[in-house]
Design a protein around this nucleic acid. Sequence first.
DNA 1: TAAGAAATTATCATTTTCCGGAATTAAAGC
DNA 2: GCTTTAATTCCGGAAAATGATAATTTCTTA
Lengths: 266, 266
Amino acid sequence: MQHQSTDGPLDRAFAIVGYVASQTRAASVAEIAAALSLPLPTAHRLIGNLEQRGLLQKAVGTKRYVVGNQLVTLSARVIGAAFRTARRHAVLRAVAAEIGEQCEIGIVRDNVVAYVDSVRVSQPQGLQFNPGEAAPLHCTSTGKIYMSRLPERAREKLCGALALTRYTETTIVDVESLMKVLDETRKRGWAKTNEEYVRGVVGCAVPILSPDRELIACLGVSVPVARVSFVELDRFIGPLQKAAELLSETILQADEDGRSDASAEA
Amino acid sequence: MQHQSTDGPLDRAFAIVGYVASQTRAASVAEIAAALSLPLPTAHRLIGNLEQRGLLQKAVGTKRYVVGNQLVTLSARVIGAAFRTARRHAVLRAVAAEIGEQCEIGIVRDNVVAYVDSVRVSQPQGLQFNPGEAAPLHCTSTGKIYMSRLPERAREKLCGALALTRYTETTIVDVESLMKVLDETRKRGWAKTNEEYVRGVVGCAVPILSPDRELIACLGVSVPVARVSFVELDRFIGPLQKAAELLSETILQADEDGRSDASAEA
DNA sequence: TAAGAAATTATCATTTTCCGGAATTAAAGC
DNA sequence: GCTTTAATTCCGGAAAATGATAATTTCTTA
């Protein structure tokens, strides 16, 4: 059953990590202990273990905990691996074929967009985001979606902190314009990019959401403006959204993927 | 990926998960066991545990393993939660870009310098302080700053207690010299290191202070002496101090970030 | 500044889990 | 169909995690 009161140490470790990851602010040991009904000394010991391994770390200057670097690195890999599985890759390939352009899945990590999977269709034109490559936030559709979904204050602060490097004439380099674009993006639910990173290449992206509406990754298209104009990009949004929904479903109930082994959630 | 086979069960669990996540294709038990040098029966048991918890699962119709749903869910949360450190990282990235060299944020814990975040610019030259690594106090700029700000008696005692290991010809290994350097450091407000830990690498650091002038962490640069000489380091101090001030603001307001609810459902 | 409250660390007998060689079973090769 | 090899399960000794209690430190508050 659901009570993890006396499960193994491993369950507790993951429960703690999960709790910290699900909080919007850094969590104190006491909070964690209370939330998971752990004895205080035990909580200290367990959290200490996790801290030593870099899975949790103290928020700088405080005693509260946030997710650690090791954990973030691992998580990025996991997300990448998850999207590379056959079924999900097939979805990606299908939408790429339907659209007829290069599609890619990207996540945000360390304030850059990292591409975890991509499918290119025949012509090696346009922008090739190969898995593992990274691009800045302010001039990619995925980056815009990510930023647009942050709480307002965090968004403002982040925009101020980012180095808004100019790559082309249309790169957005001032905070005000960027904030405005992000506002639109949030309302609209998807993002476009108009030759802001590479001249001659436009693109758009839609979010891939978890069951509880958290942003997991983005699904996007990059295409030479010679082939598809900035305004014409809109016609890709529909298919992309459909595919994104499919992808989030496979993330949700991949039970069909694996086998349905009784222990699933009973 | 290092695999210390005789660490705790938790390390093994994470090593396995990490291995699976880093593979392009589903991994068999034997592969995993071989890669992490685990006894075969042990690998089976551990992987079985992970499978029960939904952290790993068998790829459709095979006995090979891929990342499980629980793990993907957790990872998505972790990536989302990482925005808490996003601003800090963005500031760090910006100063690294300005300076053009590897920058890192370090704190002192248990009498060693632990690096909590770092940004490297392009070439993997110079010294890589990867988050999670630790270095001695007496031969790092961050360590010097920390010691220099201790009350005099505590400082003396600590210097006496430290094992002043010699790493290079210029490592400071006698207490008297060290005390003198610390004195200078305190007056000056920042620290330099002249190939004292790793030959061919020099560096400098400035303190990140709380509003009440308490030391929270240090912001530093590491650079190959071939590129920047020991004396030339001084030109980094200005930009570093500016960034440190920004960081101390950023870090302090960390709590308010998460304030606006996570479930912002638009 | 001092008294009090809360948080953190230390100790330790008990319980639980882990470990991996040996044995068993399934799969592959001939 | 039989042999060889790989995958899987068993199980008792070894190692650890556990959490009550208590001591210590740190933070609040008067």
